[in-house]
Computed example of a mutant assay.
Amino acid sequence: CLHDTVGRKVEWHIIGSPACSDYVEWMEKDTFARHNVRFLGVLDADTIKDELLDCDLYIQPSYIDNSPNSLCEAMALGVPCIASATGGIPSIITHGVNGLLTQVNDPYALASAILRLSGDTDMMSRLSSAAMSTSHERHAPETIAKQLIEAYQSIMSR
């Protein structure tokens, strides 16, 4: 139980459609609610923003992912992020600079990163500021236009 480890109550809010959560509960003979896991379902943009602004950490434990919008949204709002180093995620997060990366399918590394970050408010603040800065630079209209023009020029030069 994370409550015993980090000294505070932990709630997991999962946004989106939960695939087979009833089956997992039946197999484990336990409930997610007992472990403070809440499936919020599919939410509108404003509710997602409110959920992100109300959380301490955003976690993206993907097996395969190219460029998850939800990670970019969390970073833009300044939520400290932990994500799996898979697909395009390492091009979004620089480990220890604007978020933390963990190995794919390594629950111990993920738990360690969660404990490390949740216990270090200075690191949370530093990662939060860097995430917002990275996000605003990466998604600025000028940056996107410049990258698009460079891509077209590269194609045309061939």
Rank of each mutant, 00 (worst) to 15 (best):
A131T: 03
A145E: 12
M27Q: 12
D44Y: 00
S133K: 15
L77Y: 07
S129D: 15
P141M: 10
V10N: 00
L127I: 06
V37N: 09
T5G: 05
E25R: 02
R8I: 00
L100C: 09
D54E: 06
Q153S: 13
E150T: 07
S133N: 13
C55I: 01
G7D: 03
E51T: 06
A131R: 06
Y58S: 08
I92Y: 05
N66A: 13
I14K: 08
V104W: 02
R126W: 08
A131Q: 01
P90G: 08
G7S: 06
N66W: 00
S67N: 08
N105R: 14
L57P: 05
V24A: 10
S112L: 12
G41K: 03
K9T: 09
S154R: 14
D46R: 10
S128C: 06
T134I: 00
P18K: 05
Q103P: 14
D30I: 03
R34T: 07
I59Y: 01
L52N: 09
A111H: 02
G41H: 01
N105Q: 15
S157K: 08
S67D: 07
S67M: 11
A113N: 14
L57D: 04
L71W: 03
M75S: 05
L148R: 13
A76T: 06
V42D: 13
V97G: 00
D120F: 02
S70A: 08
E11Q: 10
P18E: 01
F39G: 05
P61Q: 07
L110W: 12
L40P: 04
Y23E: 15
D44E: 14
N69W: 01
N105L: 10
L2N: 12
G87W: 05
T47W: 00
D54W: 01
G16S: 06
E25W: 01
Y152G: 06
V37Q: 08
G7I: 08
D4A: 15
Y58I: 00
D22M: 09
Y152C: 05
E25Y: 05
I82R: 02
K146V: 00
A111N: 12
Y152A: 02
D30N: 14
D44Q: 10
Y63K: 10
K9P: 00
T143L: 01
L117V: 12
T47M: 12
L110G: 06
A83H: 06
D30S: 12
S112H: 13
K29W: 07
S154G: 15
D44H: 04
I64W: 13
